[in-house]
């Protein structure tokens, strides 16, 4: 086990290094120049001005030097300075991260919370009309475009309850109830694919477990259908469920980009879209690095957990 953890740690370092290099290169390869945008469209731009600005923000150095400066500072906890506002990137991220984290956690809670009972119902009704209907619904939940759903939801609610204040974001410590009220709709939007995915996962894990010997034994002992489902099969189904949660965190951020845009939530998604438009290299690099590293680390943790949970994989 120790050896395994060690090899995995080496791999992890390799992956993180690769991710940082890829992020760095990708952003440098994006056509369009930060300096050009900073100087704006309608101005006198002289070559000297461009050169002065380039050297001020360090864009005139060789790529490898830029990478080294960036990554070594990042390891010391200094993520650089945002090009436009002059604020430390860490501060910018800190001021955007909570809405996204809250939204994601809420979506995860809604999605995962409803997925277990939904999956159980589907499994217990296997093959019957209700199971088929729920499966169709879950496929629909998985394939409905979230940006479309968000706009439609807003318009529908605006027609039905025009005086509802549902846009924007209020910090939790300022007004917890208002905060949650405004996040419910976007969180539901974001949670649909999670719900669909996880409920199908629970269903198939349950069906698989139900086919195995120890369940047959339990069943033979005369235990009721629901008890068999809950006590035995569900415990077994939890392993893939937990693993899949790790992967869902990756989906959440992608989904949050669009949902935040629609519901006017000032989170990481907004920060990323803005930084792409402005060619705000230091900010964009840092956010993407943070998000991807977070995803890698979460999945590393889940992987270890998975091995701990599943005795067959422990050696």
């Amino acid at each position: 086990m120790t050896r395994l953890v060690l090899t995995r740690l080496v791999d992890l370092a390799f992956v993180l290094l690769g991710v940082s290099l890829l992020v760095f290169c990708m952003i440098r390869l994006i056509p369009g120049d930060a300096v050009a945008i900073m100087l704006g469209a309608n101005t006198d731009v002289t070559p000297e001005k461009v050169a002065a600005l380039r050297s001020r923000i360090g864009l005139d150095q060789p790529l490898l030097t830029q990478y080294w400066h960036w990554i070594s500072a990042a390891l010391r906890g200094d993520l650089g300075t945002s090009l436009w506002t002059g604020r430390p990137v860490g501060e910018e991220i800190a001021s955007h991260i909570w809405p996204t984290v809250q939204l994601s956690v809420l979506a995860l809670v809604i999605g995962a919370g409803l997925a277990v009972p939904a999956g159980c119902v589907m499994a217990s009704l296997r093959g019957r009309a209700a199971d088929v209907a729920m499966r169709l619904a879950s496929v629909a939940g998985l394939t409905i475009p979230s940006f479309w759903l968000g706009i439609v939801l807003i318009l529908v609610l605006a027609t039905l309850a025009p005086s509802l204040q549902m846009l924007g974001y209020v910090p939790f410590w300022q007004d917890p109830l208002d905060n949650l009220a405004r996040l419910v709709l976007p969180a539901v939007c974001l949670s649909l694919p999670i719900l669909a995915n996880l409920s199908r996962l629970v269903r198939s894990a349950l069906l698989e477990a139900l086919g195995q010997d120890y369940i047959r034994t339990a069943r033979a002992k005369g235990l009721g259908e629901w008890r068999v489902l809950y006590r035995h099969a569900l415990a077994n189904a939890m392993i893939p469920f937990v693993t899949s949660l790790g992967i869902q965190t990756g989906y959440l951020l992608g989904g949050a980009i669009v949902v935040e845009q629609v519901f006017a939530i000032p989170g990481l998604g907004q920060l990323i879209l803005g930084a792409i438009g402005d060619r705000n290299y230091p900010l964009l690099q840092a956010v993407i690095l943070l998000v991807t590293s977070g995803f890698v680390l979460v999945n590393f943790g889940v992987d270890l957990l998975y091995r701990l949970l599943d005795p067959r994989l422990r050696d």
Binding site: L22, I27, I288, F295
Partner: peptide, 28 residues
């Protein structure tokens, strides 16, 4: 195996939309 799969892990670490947006941003 190790090299290939770690390279795949690097790509896999990016949220789908983010990587797609990144690639399109580079290629136009």
């Amino acid at each position: 195996e190790r090299l290939v799969m770690r390279a795949m892990d690097i790509l896999f670490a990016f949220p789908v939309m983010l990587l797609a947006i990144g690639v399109v941003a580079v290629l136009g």
